[in-house]
Design a protein around this nucleic acid. Structure first.
Lengths: 128, 128
DNA sequence: TATAGTAGGTACCTAGAGGAAAGTGACTAT
DNA sequence: ATAGTCACTTTCCTCTAGGTACCTACTATA
């Protein structure tokens, strides 16, 4: 049995095996979830179109998908008002709010170290 | 001019506009980078095959790609020893080490809140 | 009459990431 | 002579996330 066979045997769900924080990363930092959570966090309760306009380039299909996912994970609360035209509001849940210090931590790291990454990239690109 | 045209006009590079931490998320939490950084962080300096075996399901092609990216971003240091057979060692840089408290913070959140996400998912799935 | 606003749903399609498998080069051990 | 080690590289192929465009139902407005 070759290496490839062994690798294929345990495939599909895998990075989690090596690293206990992969699950959280998948939940919180998958594509589009960060801008959505951030917008909800800084501007409070909002309607679908407000989110759409603030994020700017997201398509309604993807926004719906990501909001459903965040709602299922308990990070976002969706409130439907059966009016005409329909009104739906999204807000961060308490569980979602527990991510705030983590986001602040990330913003701190960004402020203090992001330019070092930029410099490293320039150095790497110029030496080759 | 329809909505779609306006949306397409500013497309391509975008989530960063709405959210100041998107750049960091792209650098640190893109696919495979978290397990790589975590393995390097917990097991110290390692060779290519050790990383490959510890992560388990990553292919050499992707591992090379991600390591190059992490090296370019200054998070990982690569040391090449021109021997036969060749020996290459990878370790976390000082910049990469500055992520340690952030990773600890993530592990904390995971330990205290991951089961709440699980419960929210079960609740959501059973009520539909 | 027709258009806009609201919160999506649905069908189709493409680009690109990632996986599988084989190759490379230089040397060693059997 | 063959196989193995290491750190990749290359080629091919698949899969799916995401984009485009169009659809719903209902009302207010021009």
């Amino acid at each position: 049995m070759g290496m490839e066979t062994m690798r294929a045997a345990s495939a599909a769900t895998a990075p989690e095996l090596a690293c206990p924080i992969s699950a959280v990363v998948d939940i919180v930092f998958s594509r589009w979830t960060t801008p959505i959570l951030w917008t909800l966090h800084t501007h409070g309760r909002q309607r679908f179109v407000e989110l759409e306009r603030r994020i700017g380039t997201i398509t309604p299909k993807v926004l719906t998908q990501r909001l459903r996912q965040l709602e299922r994970d308990g990070l976002v609360v969706r409130t439907y008002h059966p009016e005409v035209p329909p009104r739906v509001e999204y807000e961060i849940s308490e569980l979602g709010r527990s991510l705030a210090p983590l986001f602040a931590h990330l913003a701190d790291w960004s402020a203090t170290h992001l330019d070092e990454v930029e410099q490293a990239r320039h150095a790497y690109d110029s030496e080759s």
